[in-house]
């Protein structure tokens, strides 16, 4: 296990190093001099420009610039946004937490719905229910997520007037940001409208969660179903059946535990598509998360913000993937010796 851990950890460090190089070089890859990329409208005064040059050590060589850049990142000084002069680090935490909240709630829905669907349809393999689930997952996987989002808006917001379509909470609620996780912040807030605020936050998260969760739900249903069918053809399952165990007992005692040992890996592999989907959906629902922020920064050519966003999201995805690998290896010794692991 230790050797495996060290191997994974090395991989993590190297990938993060490469990513930081990429993020650092973004400034130099933009057309024109780096200082023009930081000030595309040439609206800064000379003093402000020289302060920026100081901040990024642009008057020094590439390596010392890079070291300077990494120093800044580690000390939490990620620069200030060109658009609204807010420190990027604070903005990053804020928007990334919002994204994470949405992604986690979508993943939660996916596990709650997708896995049982997959299990039932594997159990009744070949039945009309199974065929129905297979068709639905195919549709869910192939229809673009923004279409789902718009349909949800059309039905639940504009048609039935049940749910709101933008933001995280009604704008009249004033919740101080402490942990940046809205539900916890509401619980901490000492507000006379606490319950109403909580209800408002829940109503706001419902539609975007539904829209995002379609991809991981169908993916999990598909994976679960396929894995279980695959497992049920294995010899030990056949043997258990031959011994006289019922299909239900076989599924419950043998097939499912076997499947769940690799489950965490599947979830880890879904992180990347999940975050990508979340970022698209955020834009549609005006959710103040990293995706919306990234798109605004791209439009405004706010290089430090783009760098920060890229770095944070990619590091997060890699960390999740490494952690899920480690967890999988910890729970299943066989996977440690896998050559590609």
């Amino acid at each position: 296990m230790w050797r495996y851990f060290i191997r994974k950890f090395n991989l993590l460090i190297i990938t993060i190093f490469l990513l930081s190089l990429l993020s650092f070089s973004l400034l130099h890859l933009m057309p024109g001099a780096p200082i023009d990329a930081l000030d595309p409208d040439s609206s800064l005064s000379l003093a402000e420009k020289s302060a920026l040059i100081q901040h990024y050590a642009l008057d020094q060589g590439y390596w010392s610039q890079y070291i300077h850049y990494m120093g800044n990142i580690f000390s939490g000084d990620w620069g200030t946004s060109r658009i609204d002069q807010i420190p990027i680090f604070a903005q990053m935490i804020n928007s990334f937490m919002a994204t994470l909240q949405l992604a986690i709630s979508a993943m939660f829905v996916a596990m709650l719905v997708g896995v049982p669907l997959g299990i039932i349809s594997a159990y009744y393999h070949g039945s009309w229910f199974d065929r129905g689930v297979t068709t639905l997952t195919l549709i869910g996987q192939s229809v673009p997520v923004f279409w789902w989002a718009l349909m949800l808006i059309l039905i639940f917001a504009l048609g039935l007037h049940w749910l709101p379509i933008s933001g995280r909470i009604g704008l009249l609620y004033d919740i101080p940001e402490v942990t940046h996780i809205l539900l916890i912040d509401i619980a901490l807030a000492d507000d006379e409208y606490q319950r109403a605020a909580l209800w408002s936050a829940i109503r706001h998260i419902m539609l975007p969660t539904l829209a995002i969760s379609i991809i991981p739900t169908t993916a999990l249903a598909q994976i679960t179903r396929a894995s279980l069918i695959d497992i049920s053809e294995k010899n030990y399952i056949q043997a258990a059946r031959a011994k006289g165990l019922s299909r239900y007992q076989v599924l419950w005692r043998h097939a499912l535990p076997n499947y769940f040992s690799s489950f965490i890996r599947h979830v880890g592999a879904l992180t990347n598509p999940l975050l990508t989907t979340t970022m698209v959906v955020e834009y549609i629902f005006s959710w103040p998360g990293a995706g919306r922020w990234l798109i605004h920064s791209l439009v405004a050519q706010d290089v430090p913000a783009i760098q920060a966003c890229m770095l944070t999201i990619s590091i997060f995805v890699i960390c999740v993937s490494v952690i899920t690998d480690l967890l999988a290896a910890w729970s299943d010794p066989q996977q440690r010796s896998m050559p590609h692991g």
Binding site: A157, L158, L163, P164, I165, S166, G167, L171
Partner: peptide
């Protein structure tokens, strides 16, 4: 509530936001 998109403004009015 800053909503530059006209259709979005209408949608928010309809949903009561």
């Amino acid at each position: 509530d800053i909503t530059p998109n006209g259709t979005m403004r209408l949608a928010k009015l309809l949903t009561g936001e």
